[in-house]
Each structure stands twice: as C-alpha cells, then as structure tokens.
C-alpha cells in the first residue's frame, strides 16, 4: 500500500503544472482534447501525436491531455463539445468526419450544428478506396462490371465506408458486387480477404495501405478526394451513370477532405481560436512530428479552419429532397 501511494505521489507530481513565467493565456493551464473513441483507434492516435507536439506551438506551453469519450460513433463527444464544454479554448474535440452526414440526415441524438462550431481544421485528409485481393483476375473497372461471379465485398455494416462506398458503386456504377456485412472491425475484413472469404473491401486508404504494401490487395477505385500515390485511379463519380448517383457519391466522400476534424465549442473567443489554429498548423509542419507520423503510418495533411467550414457547408447545402434521397443510401453508423 505504501509503495502504491509513493508511486501515485511521484506520478501525480509529473502532471502538476509548473511555475508561471509570463502572461500568455495558456500559461499553467491544461488544454483538453476530447476524443470520441476509445484508446487505440485512428482518432486517438492522431490526438496523441498532436498532444505531444502542440505545447511547443502554444504560447505559455500548456499541458495537453487526452480524454476519451467514446460512444455512438462520437456523437456523444460532439454533443459534449457543442453544448457542455465551456468556450474558453481549454477544451477542444475530435470526432468522426461523417457527423456532417449525420447532421444532414437528421440522425436521432444529434444535438450539434457543425457550421456553428469554432473550427480548428483537420489534421489529415483520407480517401475511401476500393481494394481487391491481388489474385482476383479482374484488372479494370469494366472487368468488375462484367464479372460472371459476383465479387464478394466484406464490410462491417451500414454507415461505414466499408459498406456505403461499395454499395453506392454497386447501385450506381453497376459493379457486380455481393456485399457481406457483419465483420466486427475493418481489420477483420482484411483477414477475411486473406482467407478468401471475401474478395475485396472498401475503406480508408490509410488503413488499407499496409496491406497494399504487403501485396495482399491492390487498389481499384478512389473518391474525389485527392491523395498522393493513388491520383490515377478511376474516381467513383465518373463511373456513376446517373446524376443522382454522382451527387450522392459526392456527398458521401466530401467529408473525407476533413478526415480528422478538430473543433472547439461555439463562441470560443477569436484570439484564442487564432492561437489554436496557428498551433495546429505549425505542429503539422513540425519536422519531428512528421517523422513520427511517417513511422506510425499516420499521414499528415493539414486543412485550415476556413476550408473545413467550406466542406461542412457544402455537404449541408443539399436541398431537403436530396437529403431525403441520401438517407436511402447512406446511413450514419459505425
């Protein structure tokens, strides 16, 4: 027992903020990043990466801490940032980029308006891609259309890019897919591909990249979001036959431009927001951060606040009939 208390004292002392020596707002304060997922996932890993480097670029060098607030695919965290957290610049959050679509399709439980959030930006863009196992004989999109046997696409479930992206391709681009949802995670789908239970999957490029490098799968189709190294792949919207299909695909993929969004509560003072925006922008150019990001396979591609807001507005601009139509094809979920 005594050892434990000694350890606690020791460890607690590490976290107690140091003496103040200046007049900066963040001097001696703690900046909390609320992450809408449990530790270990992509959103958490990005947040922890920035946690390490942000203090360098915020005057007053505050302590940065991560709080995991999982649940409802980060709607809980976004609600918290929107209406519970104080707009004092000491609490910011990161949540699913697909929340824009949740707001558009009026998902039950959404109590935020993303256009009113104080945006910081996004630390990375990512594009959904469709990848098939390397030994699948179909080489072109046309082969996928004309395939005699349907191509089995493993997926987690409606609402995720593993499901919605191939489902739209099947519906509007006429690809001969058979969708098999029910895998417990996107990496489980990868295993299913390896054991030939599935032939391919949709999903974010960054998460599939290690398996492309290993030679297990090859990328076939991308979305409108431009990501280095896969620029030449055919784009889903060009494959869709109807205008409606193109429009729905565009709405689905636009939020991917701000794949790892960061925002503060509405009403956070402008000068504080400037500090935060600058800090994120500078940190994402930091050499050490970039080196570490490269090692941990977390691509960095900062999108500034103004551009992030534009993305949000573009998605939410849909007329009500269109929003209604979208609900039929895209669900918000895990």
């Amino acid at each position: 027992m005594r050892q434990l208390t000694a350890l606690l004292f020791f460890l607690a002392s590490l976290w107690i903020p140091g003496f103040s020596h200046g007049a900066a707002y963040y001097e001696g304060k703690t900046l909390t990043i609320v992450v809408g997922y449990k530790p270990g996932g992509g959103y958490d890993r990005y947040a922890r990466l920035f946690q390490k480097f942000l203090p360098r670029y915020i005057p007053g060098n505050p302590t940065v801490v991560i709080q995991n607030m999982p649940g409802a695919n980060s709607i809980i965290a976004a609600n918290h940032i929107y209406s519970v957290a104080k707009p004092d610049g000491l609490t910011i959050g990161t949540f699913n980029n697909g929340l824009v679509i949740a707001q558009l399709t009026k998902v039950e439980g959404v109590r935020f308006d993303l256009t009113k959030m104080a945006w910081i930006g996004s630390t990375a863009s990512d594009a959904a891609i469709l990848a098939v196992r390397a030994d699948v004989p179909h080489k072109t999109v046309d082969d996928l259309r004309k395939a005699k046997e349907p191509i089995v696409i493993g997926a987690t479930g409606p609402g995720s890019s593993t499901y919605d992206f191939p489902a739209l391709l099947k519906e509007f681009a006429g690809l001969n897919f058979k969708l098999v949802p029910g895998y417990s995670s996107s990496s489980d789908v990868m295993l299913a591909i390896e054991r030939k239970e599935a032939d391919g999957r949709g999903g974010s490029y960054a998460s599939i990249l290690p398996f492309i490098e290993r030679g297990l799968v090859r990328p076939m189709i991308r979305t409108r979001v431009v990501v280095p190294e896969i620029e030449k792949l055919p784009v889903d919207e060009d494959l869709a036959a109807s205008a409606k299909g193109k429009a729905i695909m565009a709405v689905r993929s636009t939020p991917e431009i701000i794949y790892r969004p960061y925002a503060a509560p509405p009403g956070t003072p402008a000068e504080t927001m400037k500090i935060l925006r600058d800090a994120f922008a500078k940190a994402s150019r930091d050499k050490d951060l970039l080196a570490e990001a490269k090692k941990t396979k977390l691509p960095i591609d900062f999108v500034a606040a103004e551009d992030a807001v534009k993305v949000v507005q573009e998605v939410l601009r849909q007329p009500p009939e269109m929003a209604q139509e979208i609900t039929k094809y895209i669900k918000f979920g895990d």
């Binding site: 606690l8 909390t32 709080q67």
Partner: peptide, 20 residues
C-alpha cells in the same frame, strides 16, 4: 484521505478521465 488520493491523484490528475 486515501480514497481522495486515489480519486484525485490517479484517476483525475494522472489518467485525466472525463468526470462530468
């Protein structure tokens, strides 16, 4: 006192759990 130490030192200050 011990319970307070646990609560505040470990869970609040070290682990930064979001306590509403």
């Amino acid at each position: 006192g011990v319970s307070w130490l646990f609560m505040d030192g470990l869970f609040n200050r070290l682990l930064h759990l979001p306590f509403p």
